[in-house]
């Protein structure tokens, strides 16, 4: 099941510049594991060592924040978009 993962500017160095990548997985956790396998080093930017989401990074399935769904267990279906949105502070 292919999910489109949207990569924010700060993480595109890890994806070779790609702003979106297609990843297989039926929930957020699986997609993050597959994303890490394809682009090593990306998961530690999104998750803490204990696996929880970092508190300044949000993941959205389409336009819904997974923290208010089933978090990393939020299920995904074909065609869903998973967006990684880190807090940014430049002004």
């Amino acid at each position: 099941m292919a999910i489109t993962v949207r990569i924010p500017t700060p993480l595109r160095k890890i994806t070779g510049g790609s702003d979106e990548v297609a990843i297989e997985g039926s929930n957020v956790s699986e997609v993050l594991a597959a994303l890490e396998a394809a682009h090593p080093g990306i998961k530690e930017r999104i998750c803490e060592d204990n696996g929880n989401l970092r508190k300044f990074v949000n993941l959205y399935v389409n336009d819904e924040d997974i923290r208010f769904k089933d978090n990393l267990e939020t299920t995904l279906k074909e065609g869903d978009e998973l967006s990684i949105v880190p807090a940014i502070a430049g002004g």
Binding site: P8, T9, P10, V85, A87, I88, A89, G90, G91
Partner: peptide, 10 residues
């Protein structure tokens, strides 16, 4: 609130 980084803004 507005913020930006490189080519991206919120």
């Amino acid at each position: 609130s507005g913020s930006m980084f490189r080519f991206e803004g919120q």
